[in-house]
């Protein structure tokens, strides 16, 4: 029983890590490879989650949909919707560099959050959407405990398949000429332009591609919890946490992004278990101390490993001493 519980907890963490890894991979395309400071991850996460929710839930009064479609239609729809939302945003905002893009994208994510919260016809407003079907969740022939385990394992398998597919796709692109071109644009825009590369179009490509992955991450999250509410679009847990994962894991390195997601989520989740060791009369203070510990751990890792756990690998041109380390 004890070990079953630990196994269930591990499965749950692995599912969350997988979902966050998708978000971090998407961000890696934008920041790690194209140098785009997107601080509006939560917005694309929300678009994906809600699109999939609307497509796959049963018909509901008072809002559009649901259309009762299979979950994979919802997930593909989530990617398409996130990409469609990213397109005009990218078209307008990608001309801003770095910190300007960051504040612009934070603003857009906030506007998306307010729309999601306020437009009940679209999203059921502040109440959110529940009753989202979760694939491979029911194992009626099994006992409760094993069915629970099996449903988590099955969902983890799906998440892993999606993650591996996304990873292979992204990795292949980066090693292809496309990836070299992206890094060239990131590291020296002028030179890339002089060589006849369409810098703006390529950036837009990276932005849309990354956003689609974030949308997919949102959809996976909504189906796992069987619900999506505006509370999930909190900038702290849906944007900044992903940034921490990527920077800590190593921006520019896809495996680093996934490893970062794992390490940060493990710190995030397990720190609570550590602070629960405090005497019970401090049970509430322990939660504040936990946030302090998370902040402190972050400082330690950044202090001793500022280039990330897995730095960007040197590819091709080995004369470049530290590619990726000095863009701001």
């Amino acid at each position: 029983m004890e070990y079953l519980g630990l196994l269930n907890y591990a499965l749950f963490m692995a599912i969350f890590i997988g979902i966050y890894a998708l978000l971090a991979l998407g961000l890696n395309i934008q920041w790690g490879f194209a140098g785009l400071f997107n601080a509006g991850i939560a917005g694309f996460f929300a678009v994906g989650a809600y699109t999939s929710a609307i497509l796959t839930t049963e018909h509901a009064d008072g809002r559009i949909g649901g259309f009762d479609m299979p979950f994979f239609v919802g997930w593909i729809g989530a990617m398409i919707a996130a990409a469609l939302v990213a397109w005009p945003i990218g078209k307008i905002c990608l001309r801003f560099r770095s910190d300007y893009l960051a504040i612009a994208s934070i603003g857009i994510a906030e506007i998306i959050r307010l729309v999601v919260k306020s437009e009940a016809v679209l999203t059921n407003g502040a109440r959110g959407i529940s009753g989202i079907p979760r694939p491979a969740a029911e194992f009626p022939s099994m006992a409760q405990e094993t069915a629970y385990l099996a449903s988590q394992a099955a969902y983890l398998a799906i998440v892993v398949v999606v993650l591996v597919a996304a990873y292979l796709l992204v990795e292949r692109q980066f090693n292809a000429p496309w990836g070299r071109m992206m890094r060239a644009i990131r590291d020296n825009e002028g030179a890339a332009k002089a060589m006849g590369k369409d810098v703006e179009f390529r950036r837009l490509q990276a932005f849309i591609f990354g956003s689609a992955l974030m949308g997919l991450g949102g959809a996976l999250f909504a189906h796992f919890n069987r619900s999506i509410t505006p509370e999930a679009i909190d900038p702290m847990v849906a944007t900044f946490l992903v940034w921490i994962m990527l920077i800590l894991g190593g921006s520019g390195n896809n495996r680093g992004a996934i490893l970062g997601a794992a390490v940060v989520w493990i710190i995030w989740s397990m720190s609570e278990i550590a602070t629960d060791r405090l005497p019970t009369e401090y049970a509430i203070q322990a939660k504040y101390i936990r946030l302090f510990l998370i902040g402190l751990m972050l400082q330690l890792v950044l202090r001793f490993r500022p280039e990330g756990l897995l730095p960007e690998p040197l590819r091709g041109d080995r004369r470049a001493p530290k590619s990726g380390a000095d863009h701001t």
Partner: peptide
């Protein structure tokens, strides 16, 4: 015994706190 968990008013932390309560604390 009451096992206190921080759900932080969002689904991400809420599910995380719930899974710890159910699976780790039993």
């Amino acid at each position: 015994v009451g096992v206190v968990g921080d759900s932080a008013c969002n689904p991400q932390n809420g599910t995380d706190a719930a899974t710890k309560a159910v699976n780790i604390e039993g």
